[in-house]
Design a protein around this nucleic acid. Structure first.
Lengths: 117, 117
DNA sequence: AAAAATGTGTCCTATATATGACACATGACT
DNA sequence: AGTCATGTGTCATATATAGGACACATTTTT
């Protein structure tokens, strides 16, 4: 969608300015994939990787996994599982919140967290 | 997951008692798939169909698409798109609501719908 | 009894997903 | 100058996804 690869490359190169170990090869090794594959991901020569790989990559780069998954065009499997347990409830809720501004949704989140139910 | 196929079969056979046109063949034709394929779906010989096919099948059988998609182990692409636009916000919200009882979530839905924000 | 409809077995295919392996040219460091 | 590390091109593969086509035996309807 919104160029997953180039974003990864930007983040990695930014980290690299302070830490030599953020080369394609070393990051790939720590994440557990082939350097050539990471290179292709960063240049969007291939589609974004699987959820598991995306999450490990996010962690390695100090980014939010849910945000990176979103960039990759995915939604975390654990969120999907929560929705699937009560599909009508969550489908309604999410569609209703589609146009609701962040602050209002945040108020809802806080209300729920503070046990107002 | 929770036997998508057999559920479809149950629903179709129930409808069939009142209406002869709910045979595998005729439903398949109306849904736009091959009868042999629907037969295999119902007996779980193959995985549940794509989102588009699942939704058409749900409509044909008068069931809620989101519920059928959930049974098929999927979450509607439009819901995923909403989540992906504000991943942190929705990820937090959904995880917070994981253990919250239906009634409490429904109250939230209503509050939002009634424009309390 | 003949015709029509039904469910399903078997075989086949096309595209997408998710990587690995290896080699090679270039650049950085010792 | 030589070693080492780097990024990437090329080729290959394994599994999953999403079905279609056709034939055949069995019911069901006329």
């Amino acid at each position: 969608m919104t160029h997953f690869g180039p974003t990864i490359r930007d983040i990695r190169e930014r980290l690299r300015r302070d830490d030599r170990s953020y080369s394609v090869r070393q990051v790939a090794r720590r994440v557990g994939i082939e350097p050539a594959y990471l290179s292709k991901i960063e240049r969007s020569e291939v589609a974004p990787p699987s959820e598991a790989t995306t999450v490990r990559l996010a962690q390695e780069l100090g980014e939010d996994p849910d945000v990176m998954l979103a960039l990759a065009g995915k939604v975390s499997a654990d969120l999907q599982a929560i929705i699937r347990k009560r599909p009508r409830l969550f489908a309604d809720l999410i569609r209703q919140l589609k146009e609701v501004p962040d602050e209002a949704v945040l108020r809802v989140v806080r209300e729920v967290r503070d046990g107002k139910w």
